[in-house]
Write a protein that binds this DNA or RNA. Structure first.
Lengths: 246, 246
DNA sequence: GACTTGAGTTGGTTA
DNA sequence: TAACCAAGTCAAGTC
């Protein structure tokens, strides 16, 4: 095969529609049989291979930073039985020994565009809001509760919310959008640690989430934690920050 | 705005390069300022918006199943100061009330392709394979070891591999490709539970992975677990399933 | 730079 | 169908 030099320098973004097959070798090996697909080669040389269906995840890809070398077959590669591969893109990761090799058979379209730098996405997250709302509306864990602070620091990471209940007992709250076993484990680690501190012990644990899986609920019960279902819309409706504007 | 009918029926895959802005509203709100980007609209009407950089994840997207309606501005929308939007794509999820609205200002390219169904990806080297090989080659945990079964069921989920060692002591094995603290916690849960059963106790724990983080290693040691590094290529080389073919 | 945690996670398998 | 778990997860924040 003859190497074609300077591939990546043509243009920032290249879109190819072609019959292709691909082999990935790295943390796993993955093989993609010949089919018509969309190849997206971005400015950082990352490569994405898409089919007609499926989510935003490509069938196969190479993440940046990586390098691309392009090969064309010489006559020696010619074979009567199989149509000649028009080109091979060998994409090598710069960080590891991952390799994605794309063999392109027939090209339906190949075009390049300069998009320029992207101003980026502005997000307005939900999990963070759950935490903020519950901190604002801390009596949802029980009348007389008081907020100590959000993101209460410990040596093993911040507790989402630290509060005290009506009796003045400390309450550590772990918040999740969707509560699974992992979240209970996390809360366990915090409570175990906090209960070693005579200034803070005893510490109650509350596992708060919009939804909690059955297994997590059982585990939480086993660990002596209370489960609290959070109704996002309800909390949003009770939000009093709007009132503060007046 | 005037609605353009039948958008999604044009062709399975549509690739648009255009100046566009986008607003997503759903589990969170996300806003994308005007910039030149690549839009990929797949056969299932899912929409992906890419910039020049970043990983395989689009800046913004809508997952299938969803519906697309396309609008064009009428004269009433004309504005002297701002260039007129050429079109608006309103993408609505069929399952939830998620909406992605893409405003397209200037189109550099707009083409469609019929890719056909994809034969799909063939993978090799995922956790399942590690598990299968270790079950086959169970003496990697020590001479005289015997496999009890893979996916050994417990009330809190299946143990990856249950075995016995040369002395007949039960051994619970948790397998990960990359071993972190979570995996050790998982193994801890299993062993704690299993050790309560007088018919099974005592149970040794082995944390087996291709790589194990230093912290997980310390935690595993603290819990009395043995760590075992798995060499996938070596295990694959020792695979005896090929021999069974003869 | 390694590790931890969340994600509009996505995807697959099983009960 | 729902729940659980793995992912070539990715990406952000922290240590």
């Amino acid at each position: 095969m003859r190497e074609v030099v300077g591939f990546a320098k043509v243009c920032p973004v290249r879109i190819i529609v072609a019959d292709c097959s691909a082999e990935y070798s790295g943390r796993l090996n993955a093989s993609l049989p010949l089919a018509k697909r969309v190849l997206l080669i971005k400015a950082d040389c990352s490569v994405l291979i898409f089919s007609e269906l499926g989510s935003y995840k490509p069938l196969n890809w190479m993440a940046a930073p990586c390098s691309i070398r392009e090969f064309e077959p010489d006559d020696a590669d010619a074979d009567i039985d199989t149509p000649p591969a028009q080109k091979v893109l060998r994409v090598c990761s710069d960080k590891s020994d991952d390799i994605l090799e794309v063999t392109v058979q027939h090209v339906y379209s190949d075009s390049s565009y300069d998009l320029g730098t992207d101003p980026g996405l502005i997000k307005d997250g939900v999990e963070d809001h759950l935490q903020r709302y519950l901190a604002q509306q801390i009596e949802r864990i029980g009348a007389g509760a008081k907020l100590v602070r959000r993101e209460y620091p410990t040596p093993i990471g911040p507790v989402d919310i630290m509060a005290t209940d009506a009796e003045g007992t400390h309450v550590a709250i772990e918040i999740k959008r969707h509560g699974g076993i992992d979240g209970v484990e996390q809360l366990t680690r915090y409570c175990t640690l906090l209960n070693r501190d005579p200034l803070i012990a005893p510490v109650r644990g509350i596992f708060a989430a919009q939804t909690i899986t059955a297994q997590a609920r059982v585990l939480a019960g086993d660990r002596g934690f209370e489960c609290l279902i959070l109704d996002y819309e309800d909390m949003k409706g009770s939000d009093d920050t709007r009132l503060r504007l007046f």
